[in-house]
Amino acid sequence: MSTQTYEAETFRKLQPQEYLRKFLLKEVRPDGRELKQFRQTTVNLGCISTTNGSSLVRIGNTTVVCGIKAEVSVPKQTSTKEGYLVPNVELSPMCSPKFKPGPPSEHAQVLSENINRLLKSASILDLNTLCIHEGSAVWVLYADIVCVNYDGNVFDACVIGLITALSNVKLPKATFAEEEGLVKATEELLIPLNLSRLPYPATFSIFDGQYLLVDPTEVEESVAHEVITIICDEAGQICTVWKVGGISCTPKHLEKCISIARERYIEIAAIVENEEKSNNLI
């Protein structure tokens, strides 16, 4: 018995692609999931009390913490009423042996930029609502997403973390005293943000041009390079389609992905709603 497991382990290390293929022939994944099954997802809101809004998201072993801090700043000359929302993703060397200490890796910057683009193009938050006083003071929301454990599909975890943390944000009531040129804010945090839509993502990998792997783990990501991410909102509208690597994706695959992404939306929305309910009870 023990020699057999040893052999499987050696096989996995030497022939990772063949190893995965053997599983997929039987319509099952190495971690025991079905092909179109997501890993267990949990959301924990308001876990960091130094922030204005925070959330911890786990998809399987992948864990990210998103914290949002609000600060006052001066608006741009060209858009005097608009505040700022600055997302930033950190992939520290702690979360995987792949990452080295040093400046943010290309991967982390790609994630940050994708999230930034999603925020802008889907106009999730109307930046004009962050205005305290036109031309002199606006809120800046710094959304820092720290990846703690990297086991694949970090982009999904980051987006869910960001959206749930944004819906968890409470800002103080702020007024601008014109004579002194100062912003005064109340101690209590009361005002929630007004989010125009709550998009949630679903990510897929295509392996061997035929197997569609939902919610890939780190091991699966490293052998299947073709990745599709679809983000849709509560109305089932698509906010983003992002497909990179490989050439085997057909329109049929894409259709299937979209329908799974819509089902996934309902699943995540239910998880978040549950967490919000239990959070309000406390």
Partner: peptide, 13 residues
């Protein structure tokens, strides 16, 4: 040893 402080960990960012 490497210590990193999450940007949101303190009262002032």
């Amino acid at each position: 040893v490497e210590i990193s402080l999450a940007p949101f960990s303190m009262s002032e960012r």
